[in-house]
Design a binder for these strands. Structure first.
Lengths: 332, 332
DNA sequence: TCCCGTATTGAACACGTGTGCAATATAGGC
DNA sequence: GCCTATATTGCACACGTGTTCAATACGGGA
């Protein structure tokens, strides 16, 4: 191939500049011992030749590749896409590159992450709700810098950042109850998903604080379609709830559609609320009342934790709990 | 750090198995010359030790890293997220890994792609609508395997896959006109965006085929919010259009919201159509009539072109035009 | 038993860079 | 002008792998 023939290496630059190859390397290394004017000359000649240090080789020699693995289950759902956007932006802002791991069957995840470590990533940010405990422990044991987002594993020594799901649910329940809603139904997500576990627990606790119990409980898959189907079932039952709380916004959007399809007024006849505050929640036909999952701050904190962990692998593990904010719109 | 201390290399495996390091390398190389039973023994010892070839080192020595750069402008918008999902899935299915480049100011893109090439990616799939012609030419000249998605640059020798935007617009116009709509307004995107250029040109051509001209032309930014604002302006003007064609689905969703806000019936008083068929287009409150941009096939074709280009850098360049499919829902 | 062709093997080199160490240049103080 | 502390520099090695090439083992036919 032509490619390798045209590739310009540090050696070429050194020759052109009449210096040693080490000098070229040092010119590109922040804080290395080299005369300022010589560095300038080398840099200018390098850019003239179109030279750029080969990060692969650099990663082999030094111990840093500048790669950060982003472990996602799926990217297409609104919340994940949103989070991914912020994370990749944050990573780029720190001069690193995101290596994306996504879209594989859940079971394959463990193997995939191990595989990714063979790329010598400096660290990984895991946003997949379904990483196995075993994998997390293995990583922790391996000493690989890892930050979990939206998930906390008790007893596993891992940094994590996660919004206070229980607090969010408490705010929602308080809002609904204070408006006189007492027949509150719940549409949750998959039982294994951590966010769902915490949100459901928060819901139950908050309700019992008012001496209430869920009017009904149903399970969907965090999708719009799933939310709609379960809401249809709830709203056509003999005893209708007067409010539906959903485990995430997507299902809540589906629930609103279900109510409309049945000719029920939202929020007059049925109040509906979600969780996350994805962009679509603010769209005119929905105006969903929800709880804002602070994505930007989540990304920032995750990256901060990761960098601190990379710098000092022995520091005590930290769990950051972000405060969600109630967003009142029309649906409740 | 502990990490490097614990790292197990081919050398360790060779020692444990009582063979040369070359043998270990060959055991992990498909089709290399090695006795079958020896390979099995090495592989089993390797997995026992938790060894895995270091892809970074492998990329340095061989010429393949197994990395494919995905160049995106932004990831958060629905269509991009959707495409990204399919692309990353397709890449993973081929045993490679996606390296994500996104979320930088447009101008920085050229530098970013050049930077990414320093990771020795085997190739890149560029989905950013706004890659400069200069950059594309530079890549082509550099011989780096590149496939452009959703964009075609005349005169630049690059593989590309792109849906037939003009055909899509023709189908939409035909549908609208055949239903008696003659006052068709257009909300386009940024003038530089390739998809917008083609779609707008297709619209004008199709309209003129019926002896028509756009009732009005406005520009937004491919966002829901932008679409709503421009639609509000259109629908409150003295002479109202009887149909609004939008450059993409997101703007069309905004337009539907605008019509609702003004109490106009969709499609009775105003027909609205978009382009792409993002998931949200099928949501109940919208039921947007649109044209389906075949994302899965786009991803598959892009990867096919990339792999062929990697295998043979000299083959003639290919441009794949995918056929969009009209999706009739309620809004038109 | 000997010879030759073939399947395996191991040693050595290449890939492009960072970095420790000793050597050198430079400047400053006397 | 000389000596010493310091700033630069270049050499050589390390990083972990793929791959070429000569050497070796093996097996079969004469």
């Amino acid at each position: 191939m032509m490619k390798e023939h045209m590739r310009v290496t540090a050696h070429d630059v050194a020759e052109a500049a009449g210096v040693s190859r080490s000098a070229v390397s040092r010119a590109f290394t922040e804080g290395a011992s080299i005369a300022p004017e010589k560095r300038q000359r080398i840099l200018s000649i390098a850019s003239m030749l179109g030279y750029q240090p080969n990060r692969i080789a650099r990663g082999l020699s030094g111990r840093r590749t500048g790669l950060v693995a982003l472990v996602f289950g799926r990217v297409s759902s609104p919340y994940e896409a949103w989070l991914l956007d912020h994370l990749s932006q944050a990573i780029r802002a720190r001069g690193k590159w995101p290596l994306l791991l996504s879209a594989f069957p859940e079971g394959e995840l463990d193997g995939a992450l191990a595989h990714a470590l063979s790329y010598q990533v400096d660290g990984a940010i895991v946003a997949a709700g379904s990483v196995s405990r075993t994998l997390a422990e293995r990583c922790a044991a391996l000493g690989a810098p890892i930050v979990m987002v939206g998930r906390i594993l008790d007893g596993v020594a891992v940094d994590a950042v996660c919004c206070d799901n229980a607090l969010g649910m408490r705010q929602l329940v308080e809002l609904l109850v204070s408006e006189g809603r007492h027949r509150i139904a719940w549409i949750g997500g998959k039982a294994e998903a951590f966010s769902n576990v915490e949100r459901q627990a928060g819901l139950l606790e908050a309700l019992s604080g008012w001496g209430l119990e869920p009017w009904a409980r149903r399970v969907a898959d965090y999708s719009v379609e799933g939310g709609m189907l379960q809401a249809l079932a709830l709203l056509t039952a003999d005893e209708r709830p007067d409010a539906i709380l959903c485990g995430n916004d997507a299902m809540a959007l589906g629930a609103i559609s279900a109510a409309r399809r049945l000719g029920l007024g939202v929020p007059e006849e049925i109040a509906i609320a979600g969780f996350d505050d994805i962009p679509a929640a603010a769209w005119e036909p929905y105006l969903l009342t929800t709880v804002c999952n602070p994505v930007a701050e989540t990304a920032a904190q995750a990256l901060r934790l990761l960098e601190q962990r990379i710098d000092d692998g022995a520091r005590p593990h930290e769990v950051v709990r972000l405060t969600p904010r109630l967003v009142r719109r029309r649906s409740a």
